[in-house]
Amino acid sequence: MFVLAELKDTIRIAPEQFHLKLSEAVRDEINRKLANKVLLNVGLCIALKDIVKLGDSIILPGDGASHTEVIFRYIVFRPTVGDVITGKIRSCSREGVHITLGFFDDILIPPTALQHPSRFEEAEQAWVWEYPLENGEGHDLFMDIGEPIKFRVSREIFEESSPIGPPDQAESASTSASQTTADVKTPYRIIAAINESGLGVLSWWESHGQEENGEDDGNEEDVEEVEMDTETV
């Protein structure tokens, strides 16, 4: 889920920071630049782990600052495709189920990757898994906001978000339009899936486990689990 990325950059240390130790000043500067930002094709940057190499500092004519080439390692949130992560449901909409991890919000489970069969309940604004019972009827399992959910990462999408031009083009209509397009463009999105047994809202599976454990540990558990698998598939 988290990886270390090795990066190289030239860091400018302004004269007012010369009283600090060079390594301290460089650390601060790197964190100021990267923390909580998405680096294209690298992931969401969290915090500096360590500095691998500090190069020689140089000064440029006309600039009182020093420039240092630094190789460093940064803690980055970058789940690999296939990872299973537990998050919380942020909201449900026609587009699918949105999930949050607290520090990262752009995770979407599209309707096609929900448990089958699922339907969207307009009144409740929630997705519902119509869990099939043995007698042919269905049992509705709601996906409510805030519930912990286990999902598998199925795709990652990086998008270059270039700086947006000057917003004031006279008409307010056009600005609102450009704002909405800017909102839509997220630099790093994760597409997830829960269409496997064991994935989805945690309580769906926990209750089964507990019941079985309560009855008798051992083989029975596995037998029932297998039955459930065949039902859901």
Binding site: F2, A5, L7, D9, N41, I71
Partner: peptide, 15 residues
């Protein structure tokens, strides 16, 4: 900014 290795190593959540 230059990315020399986007995945130098993996980290456990504990680390």
């Amino acid at each position: 900014m230059e990315v020399s290795n986007p995945c130098y190593s993996v980290l456990t959540n504990l680390e």
